[in-house]
Design a protein around this nucleic acid. Structure first.
Lengths: 357, 357
DNA sequence: AAGGTGTTCGCAATCGCTTGCGCTATCTTT
DNA sequence: AAAGATAGCGCAAGCGATTGCGAACACCTT
């Protein structure tokens, strides 16, 4: 491998000059800079990352951390999609993304035991998903490593966050059932409380119901899978037999509900309208095709990347909580015969952010 | 951050001794070693990765490269699953895994333009998938960076490889249709020729057919999606209307075929038996549930990790081509009413490998 | 003509760790 | 008892980049 020294000797200048020329630092004449850049290009010189990292204390690497059981999710490549978005935008600036899958053990032991986070191998941590415990996140943030959360949020902290507009998306979906199809008896199938996405979606449902002066009907179950979706539907129909429409906090539960409805010989959407959330790839392929709320998975990752790049560029940000718009994807499981043009989330793209300096 | 120097001063020994003690190098008494290790633990000392990398010319990092459009695949988290397996086993030895998603442009330009591969930021490259062009792989391997291929292979090279037993799996699936269900008119739905997985699976199908003295019926289409599966089925039925069973090279095509069969009012499995390949999460959920061949996704990644670790441990390997066993998962789309115990791939786990030294 | 200002560039220190080599003390051998 | 072998440890030289500081030079200003 060609070293800086050799390039400098070849040009008859000092390493200092070459370094400054290549890094766009002042103190080099335009003429010299041109020559240096040309020679570097010509001889295909690449700076050694380790040497640079040693002195700049910066690695151009960020860690993407996610619960091991959720990468990928059994049913959907949600976090891989986010990671890909992150990698796309960071790679453009020559940053790399390290994957770190966390076992339950790791989460209990905290970030102190993870070499990747401890040996100065990364400049920042992107923690994905609501099941990374706050104490883990705070411990990582405490070690003066920038942390940013995706598909998660922590109240009472200044930790930057990128999420989808869960409340808005679920509000739109619920409203669609109320306004377009005239449903009055709409139940929510939700998962584990405490997860920000589930909570946000539940809030959106309740908002829409209350705005229409309807009584919310909520069933909570552990986990948000096809199996629990089926169970939740049974509970709903026992508690409120007159229910005509279902909002599920994710597509897996919605599909579970649809399958359970078939077993109970309730036709979807004639007897029971169903809408989901996420727009996983199989939503379009279920029978009937599932009306759902698309979350901009890759864009979440991209935006997280942008936030980080701003941070590295010394754009000092006091607080940064980004919410990305969702999109209602209308298919036939809600009773719409043919798909009209997609309806944008009424709240539109939003970014709550306070930039300073 | 605590430096080696400070630890050494604290103990009243030299940095050399501390370094040797911590790295299990000879030249330190058991007693001193004990003390050093204890103090390091106590003061939670972590070596600086950059400094170490600079002198050892080794980074404890490997790159996982995959085509950007395939991470994740639209329908299935195949490569994320492999990456997770890779990360799991490498993390145990304190190695990190960098994700690199390659655009078509990157693939054309070659590895020379990618900072992550050029700046000495990684010790090895794991290239995933059949659509990374040979020239790209060879160029990367040429730069004295170890390369290993997963879900791909290159003839006439010594590049280590980890793949699933595609021929074996497809042979088993085909045999199942012949031996258990007595089918004689079995067609193969296959995708783009040249992709090792597709080719291997097609070979396995042909082998089984020839062994039973049956005429192969093969339809090739571009791409292996639900849509092309449907198209391929139409072609099959036009060419051979008496076909009673279908082998598809992946589950997406199989599901496409099942859906198309429904449109043509052929019942599955009564009029047409269908088997797929991959066992994606939705195979069990399709209607009818899909008989398919499970490929050990995460294990492929794990094995790739092991091969790399061996390499880093200076286990010199002349050639290494690992084939992992698949498993036939019998569900009702092939005509089996209830699922018997899963049938192991008859070829069993195999590893063609020549270790030297 | 002397001094001031500004630009361009090189010297050398530094980042935190590893490791070859040499020194000392202890142990074994003849 | 002298000489050689061995083990344990420290000194100091790197690894390949970045960067503060001063030197050299050109160009103005008084």
């Amino acid at each position: 491998m060609l070293r800086l020294r050799e390039l400098a000797d070849h040009l008859g200048v000092s390493t200092a000059t070459v370094s400054r020329a290549l890094n766009d630092k002042p103190g080099v004449s335009a003429e010299t800079r041109r020559k240096v850049v040309a020679a570097a290009q010509e001889m295909s010189y690449r700076p050694n990352a380790a040497a640079r990292a040693l002195i700049t204390a910066t690695t151009r690497t960020v860690v993407f951390a996610v619960h091991r059981h959720h990468f990928p999710l059994s049913v959907d490549p949600f976090y891989p999609g986010i990671m890909r978005g992150l990698e796309e935008t960071l790679a453009a600036e020559h940053y790399g993304v390290l994957l770190l899958t966390l076992s339950d053990e790791d989460l209990r032991a905290g970030p102190g035991t993870l070499p990747v986070l401890q040996e100065g191998r990364a400049d920042a941590l992107v923690a994905a998903g609501p099941d990374i415990p706050p104490q883990f996140i705070l411990a990582a943030a405490g070690r003066s490593m920038p942390v940013i959360l995706v598909d998660n949020a922590l109240r009472e902290t200044a930790i930057p966050t990128v999420t989808a507009d869960d409340p808005g998306g679920c509000r739109d979906a619920t409203r669609h059932l109320i306004d377009i199809h005239g449903h009055r008896s709409i139940a929510l199938l939700r998962g584990t409380p405490g997860w920000v996405s589930s909570d946000g979606r539940a809030d959106g449902y309740c908002d829409a119901m209350k705005a229409a002066e309807l009584e919310p009907r909520v069933v909570s179950v552990e986990d948000t899978t096809i199996a629990t979706g089926a169970v939740a539907l049974i509970e709903v129909l026992e508690a409120w037999p007159d229910t005509t429409a279902i909002v599920a906090v994710n597509d897996a539960m919605a599909i579970g509900a649809i399958r359970q409805a078939a077993k109970l010989s309730r036709r979807v959407p004639e007897d029971l309208a169903v809408v989901g959330f996420d727009d996983i790839s199989w939503a379009a392929l279920s029978d009937p095709p599932l009306t759902t709320v698309r979350v901009p998975i890759v864009q979440i990752g991209r935006r997280a990347g942008r936030v980080l790049l701003d941070h590295f560029e010394d754009v000092i940000t006091v607080s940064s909580r980004t919410t990305l718009a969702t999109e209602l994807i209308v298919r036939s499981s809600c009773g719409c015969d043919e798909s009209p043009a997609p309806v944008m989330n009424s709240s539109g793209p939003r970014r709550h952010e306070t930039d300073h300096e």
